[in-house]
Every structure is written in structure tokens, then in C-alpha cells.
């Protein structure tokens, strides 16, 4: 392995890591705030891409308008899920168990709805931007760079929202201590709605950004859901900073393993890494012990 190889692996690892962060962060947010293990998250990833496909390919909008149009739809889908599926279950026994299974049911429904509407064949989205650029020995596509830029923008927007806005702070308060937050006047239901809305936007945007590279298929979201799961658990459930670290860590691991042994080995290695992390830190890299 030469130095150039190493740099290449690192660059590609960081790129992958940033994208994975984008995929996983919404999942992490939902768990952190509402303690829901959102197993239909991957389907919203897929639906984001399909909706974008309708607007971008069928109706020929440019990407700016695609985002402007798709985000509200995703937001409403997420809120509807919270309002009509999650909230009624919250009042009953065995919330964890029921919400897990209901999530699987919703995923099944959404995925096969996608298949019924769009067919089983994969679809693709046009690149965000065409062309390539060369820096020293390394070639980057504009697609890759815009994806990175978009991921950074989204990550910052999320940071700003969570740290600087009233609603964002309410989200944080609920994540910390739901009972206390309610006492000081935060409406839990509103926060949960908001969280599901925003997370769904995050899932869908990740789907749109990745679609030019990975294609869209009805069951394509599962692969990313599983990856999001591993990232979020390794980082510490509910910790957004932990999610960031583990996304990069696993991204670089993926690039390295892919280079050394081939992509087929990526998942086994991820699993091993997760196992190691959890054996050393049972709550993940930055997980809090307050949970359970």
C-alpha cells in the first residue's frame, strides 16, 4: 500500500463517512428524542429518491425545485406516521415491541407501494452536477463534491436548528429528560411530530443525494437502514456527535476493507467493529448511561 493509496482510501472513507452521517443522523435524532427505533426509516430514504425522480425526471424540474417540493411532502409523511401510528401505540403497553413491529409493517407497505407505482426495475437520477476536477493525482467528480457540500450544509443546518432555535432546544430538552421538559411547558406531542418530520426530511434528502450514485429500487432502503443502525449504535444511541464520529470511523473502515478484501467483506467487518466497540463501551462511543 503506497502513500497515494492510503490518501485515496482516506479521502474516499471520509466521503463515505459524511454520506453515512447524513443517512444515520435522522435515525439518531428520532431515537434520541422519542426513543422510537424507526425501522421504516429506510423506506423514507427510498421515497425521497422516488419523489425526486418524479420531479426531476418526469417533470424536468431542476434540483433546487426538487428539494423545495420534496421536503414538505417528506415532512408531512413523517408527521403523519408519528400522529397516526406511533402516538396511539405510545399510550399502550409494550411500546418498544409494538412500535418496532409497526415500523416493519409501515416499511413493508411503503416499499411495495413504491414497487407497485414505480416498478421493480431500478431508476436513476441525473447527477447533481456533471464533470470532474483534478487536484494533484486525485480526480474528483463534481457530483461527489456537490454531495459533500450538500452534506456539510445539511449537517450545519441541523446543528444550527438544534443549538440556536427555540424549537431545536425543546427537542434537546425532551431528549435529555422528557418528564422535566413537560413540566417546564414543552408539549411532548409537538416535539415528537417535529422530530419525525425533520428526520424524514433528513432520510429523504440523503436518498436524493445518493440516488445518482446508487440507483433507486423499492427495497434499496434496507441496506442503508442497516448501515444507519450500525452507525448509530456504534456511536451511541441518541448522540448526534457520536453518530458523526462513528460514521467517519466506519466510512474509513469501509474504504479500507473494500480496498484490501473487496466490498463483500465490508458488512462482516462493520459487524465486527460494532461488536468490539460495544464490548469495550456497552453504550457506544458517546452513548449516555442514563438510557436504561
Amino acid at each position: 500500500m503506497s502513500l497515494n493509496d492510503l490518501i485515496e482510501i482516506l479521502i474516499s472513507g471520509i466521503t463515505i463517512g459524511l454520506v453515512y452521517f447524513l443517512i444515520a443522523v435522522g435515525f439518531s435524532l428520532i431515537y434520541g428524542v422519542s426513543r422510537v427505533l424507526h425501522l421504516s426509516y429506510g423506506s423514507f430514504f427510498t421515497w425521497g429518491a422516488y419523489l425526486a425522480w418524479i420531479f426531476a425526471v418526469k417533470l424536468n424540474f431542476n434540483y433546487f425545485w426538487v428539494f423545495v417540493l420534496v421536503c414538505p411532502i417528506l415532512y408531512i409523511m413523517g408527521m403523519a406516521l408519528e400522529r397516526f401510528v406511533v402516538r396511539p401505540l405510545r399510550k399502550r403497553d409494550n411500546f418498544d415491541f409494538n412500535v418496532l413491529l409497526a415500523g416493519l409493517g409501515v416499511a413493508l407497505f411503503l416499499d411495495y407501494a413504491a414497487q407497485a407505482f414505480f416498478g421493480a426495475r431500478t431508476k436513476s437520477l441525473p447527477s447533481l452536477l456533471d464533470g470532474t476536477i483534478q487536484i494533484h493525482d486525485f480526480v474528483f467528480s463534481y457530483q461527489q463534491l456537490t454531495m459533500l457540500a450538500a452534506a456539510v450544509v445539511i449537517a450545519f443546518a441541523l446543528w444550527f436548528f438544534l443549538e440556536k432555535t427555540r424549537q431545536g432546544l425543546a427537542l434537546g430538552a425532551v431528549a435529555q429528560d422528557p418528564v422535566g421538559a413537560r413540566i417546564v411547558g414543552v408539549s411532548l406531542n409537538k416535539v415528537y411530530l417535529l422530530t419525525f418530520g425533520i428526520s424524514t426530511i433528513l432520510a429523504g434528502s440523503a436518498g436524493i443525494l445518493l440516488a445518482p450514485r446508487f440507483f433507486i429500487s423499492p427495497l434499496g432502503g434496507w441496506k442503508f437502514l442497516i448501515k444507519a443502525l450500525i452507525i448509530v449504535v456504534a456511536g451511541g444511541l441518541g448522540s448526534i456527535r457520536g453518530t458523526l464520529y462513528s460514521a467517519f470511523l466506519l466510512g474509513i473502515l469501509e474504504a479500507l476493507v473494500g480496498w484490501l478484501f473487496g466490498l463483500l467483506w465490508v458488512m462482516p467487518f462493520w459487524f465486527l467493529a460494532l461488536l468490539l466497540i460495544l464490548l469495550i463501551k456497552p453504550h457506544g462511543l458517546l452513548g449516555s448511561t442514563a438510557d436504561h
Binding site: V85, G105, L108, A113, Q115
Partner: peptide, 9 residues
């Protein structure tokens, strides 16, 4: 399968 998903929920 769509129907099964709905049934499950």
C-alpha cells in the same frame, strides 16, 4: 406485500 404491510400495522 403492500397489503401484508398494511395488515401488519
Amino acid at each position: 406485500l403492500l397489503a401484508f404491510g398494511a395488515l401488519m400495522v
